[in-house]
Nucleic acid binder design. Structure first.
Lengths: 171, 171
DNA sequence: GCCATATGAATGAAGG
DNA sequence: CCTTCATTCATATGGC
């Protein structure tokens, strides 16, 4: 929990020294090494970002879904979620420019890491260094077709961390 | 079952797009999200690998059993988990002669019940970010007391596997 | 009522 | 930072 707290208060990639300190502190509770702390931050950051990303894309989908989509059953697929994020200091505020990220983003993740609905506080907090990823018009791809967001599933799947749900046996 | 089929036909780690498609397809049968598909593949692959591994180790045991063990009361190897190993360079643990595993098999080690107290800190892996970081300052100093590993939580009924850094839940 | 097993989800650790 | 893997956690379920 200590780690979450730090994370929450803005620590993202602690320096070696910070890691040392944290480690020392945590070692009061159990055996731990610097690398554990290091990994923790790496993973946590990444996963948090994924969630965020996902949340955004979901948002996006909702936005788009406002119209069209007659019925469930649809096809669409194709990168509904794919938002190329420009990593690398995307200009903070939503500037949608393209920026033609010199790199080519390799793939982008789809969305895993959903769950969690309690928006709970934080998240507003990340005014810090957020290497946010914003969507930027990925020149290629994405244009493919604008069919709409799959949400067509008829049912909104959101339902909260709904795990399970009917899923069973569709496989 | 669709998933098994795909798996069978070679899909192991579908790309984001593939996942999307699959998801879309499956959503005809029930509520499902990309992450479910993602997890499914991850788990399936892992478990398949695991089975295989297990099977091999069993095999191995049989081979060895010709001479070593007095009785073949197989100690519920069950997990016989070993510990950290690096991916890559399969370390057949216990390098028994032959094995000729040389193949590209991704199979890595199997562990036979050689308990062996692992001296932690065998992280020879130096060469990573964190290591570089960690090495700088005077390491050695802050060793606060180590109290021990809050052993409690780690309880499992199976065979030991010794240490296993029960780092659980200190966060 | 326990077990053993199965499977989705999550997290730690590495490699790249 | 991104992927992938191994492990582990938590349930769900089928037997006995």
């Amino acid at each position: 929990m200590i780690l979450e707290e730090m994370y929450r208060s803005g620590v993202r990639t602690p320096s070696a020294q910070q890691i040392q300190q944290i480690t020392a502190h945590l070692s009061n509770y159990g055996r731990i090494e610097g690398k554990n702390v290091f990994y923790w931050f790496q993973n946590h950051k990444a996963r948090e970002r994924q969630k965020l990303r996902r949340r955004l894309s979901r948002h996006y989908q909702l936005l788009c879904s406002g119209h069209s989509l007659p019925h469930h059953q649809l096809y669409c697929m194709q990168d509904a979620t794919a938002f190329p994020q420009s990593r690398h200091h995307a200009t903070p505020t939503h500037s949608l420019h393209l920026e033609s990220n010199g790199g080519l983003n390799l793939l982008e993740k789809m969305e895993i890491g959903n769950a969690e609905e309690a928006p709970e506080t934080n998240y507003e907090a990340f005014g810090h260094d957020w290497t946010s990823m914003m969507m930027l018009p990925n020149r290629r791809s994405l244009r493919t077709l604008d069919l709409f967001p799959t949400t067509s599933t008829g049912l909104k799947d959101e339902c909260a961390t709904s795990k399970s749900s009917s899923s069973t046996s569709i496989n």
